[in-house]
């Protein structure tokens, strides 16, 4: 078991950690969820049929566990009212929890983007993180999410548009103050 775990850890751990971290934005929670992913993976390792790549399989499990966490917490961000209450974005975005050191050393726009990701729906965030932060291809992303490639493209298109809207609104909010 240790050998399998070591192999997975060396190959994928940092990517896996980063993916979950950008989804949940909390160090301790990320550690717990990563651990949960490994346990699930090791328990079902024998039944891994190899139909997808090991990476796709691992991220697919990570995605399920992360979404499951959101559902249990009931903290999923609703993009309903928020979308129509732009005047509150500036305030909302500044009220978020502290940003990690890696982000804090970046410029203001990157920090703002980091906060704006919280205003994306689950699906938008998944696609954005997998495509732009994990740098997965459309095909890899589709495999991880169990979607068609066209759905990934459509969701990506919408997610970028949504991020553009809220980034502009956040900027206006900051400028108004």
């Amino acid at each position: 078991m240790k050998n399998i775990f070591q192999e997975l850890y060396e190959e994928y751990h940092q990517d896996l950690f980063q993916f979950i971290f950008y989804m949940v934005k909390d160090q301790a929670t990320t550690e717990d969820l990563v651990q949960e992913v490994y346990i699930k993976v090791l328990k079902s390792y024998d039944s891994f049929a190899g139909k997808s790549s090991q990476k796709t399989w691992l991220f697919s499990i990570a995605r399920h566990i992360t979404i499951d966490y959101f559902r249990k917490q009931g903290t999923r961000k609703k993009h309903t009212a928020e979308r129509y209450e732009f005047e509150e974005y500036g305030q909302y975005i500044q009220d978020q929890s502290p940003i990690p050191e890696e982000v804090a050393v970046k410029n203001e726009s990157v920090q703002q983007m980091y906060r704006c990701l919280d205003l994306c729906s689950e699906n938008h965030k998944l696609v954005i993180v997998l495509r732009y932060i994990q740098e997965m291809s459309i095909k890899e992303t589709a495999n991880v999410l169990g979607w068609s490639e066209s759905k990934v493209k459509t969701t990506q298109h919408r997610a970028l548009k949504h991020l553009r809207d809220i980034m502009e609104q956040a900027k206006e909010g900051v400028e108004d103050e």
Partner: peptide, 13 residues
């Protein structure tokens, strides 16, 4: 937006 996303930092465990 894509450029900003590509500049998002690596988060290390």
């Amino acid at each position: 937006i894509e450029k900003l996303l590509s500049e998002m930092p690596q988060i290390k465990d």
